[in-house]
């Protein structure tokens, strides 16, 4: 059961580029990454694509297929019509290196800006017994494969390059939430989230959750709970008044 599929692949680098048409053989059971590999093997040996595991676990093969941010290795060809032209483009939000490969260092910069886990100074190793219910929330966030599809899709930076400075993106706001929800973390994550990582820029339109290949409920379980914590701290007049009246810090 194979057929000749029609593809349009973006080729180029930071000096320019365009969509190029190809006709490539498609076999039963294949994913888009298989087709890209066949294209490389048969017609475009210099086509650049980043991949590693082909199992949806390394987060390397992020791209956009028919305009939707997805993993190349987890998008089955069977979801498309045989007559359909399938467009494959690099992630839009990050600077292009070549063809389907982008420079995702924005994400590493943002990752470094999140202060690391801060357990109590006087806690000896082995002294604390972690309960399952206390780590459950962070465990969901730990499923992240760092594909950066959420970062790529979030309109705050996708449509506004200038916001990259102030906004860390859903992946790293989720990291802040993970630490904030950790029973042993002592750092002040709430002010950081709003002031240093730009949580206020998120308008909870949920595109990060929509594209996450790990189906992490980024918005519902990380971003909104952080917004609620920020509201506790900064925008709750009753809490504010209590602090004024009773001189709590």
């Amino acid at each position: 059961m194979s057929y000749q599929g029609k593809f349009r692949v973006w080729r180029g680098d930071d000096s320019g580029g365009a969509l190029e048409d190809f006709t490539v053989e498609v076999n039963e059971g294949e994913v888009v990454l298989d087709i890209i590999h066949r294209l490389q093997a048969t017609q475009a040996p210099d086509l650049a694509v980043r991949w590693n595991c082909k199992a949806g676990k390394c987060g390397s093969c992020s791209a956009e297929i028919n305009g939707r941010p997805r993993l190349l290795c987890m998008t089955r060809m069977s979801v498309f019509d045989e007559s359909e032209t399938i467009t494959v483009t690099p992630m839009r939000t990050f600077p292009i290196i070549r063809d389907l490969v982008t420079d995702v260092s924005f994400n590493y910069t943002k990752a470094r800006e999140v202060p690391s886990f801060a357990p109590p100074k006087d806690l000896a190793p082995g002294e604390y017994r972690m309960q399952q219910v206390d780590v459950e929330r962070s465990q969901e966030f730990r499923k992240c494969i760092e594909c950066f599809l959420c970062q790529n899709t979030c309109h705050v930076v996708r449509d506004h390059e200038e916001n990259k400075e102030v906004f860390s993106g859903p992946r790293f706001l989720m990291r802040v939430a993970e630490l904030e929800m950790h029973p042993l973390d002592t750092a002040d994550r709430v002010d950081q989230a709003q002031d240093d990582h730009g949580l206020g820029y998120c308008n909870i339109t949920k595109c990060c959750s929509e594209v996450c290949p790990e189906h992490i409920h980024i918005t519902d379980n990380a971003l909104i709970p952080m917004k609620e914590r920020v509201a506790d701290r900064k925008y709750d007049p009753i809490v504010w008044l209590g602090n004024k009246l009773f001189r709590r810090s």
Partner: peptide
């Protein structure tokens, strides 16, 4: 470095 040059507002086909 620049983003990939893609003029279309979206390439979504749905």
């Amino acid at each position: 470095m620049a983003r990939a040059e893609i003029a279309a507002r979206t390439l979504r086909t749905d």
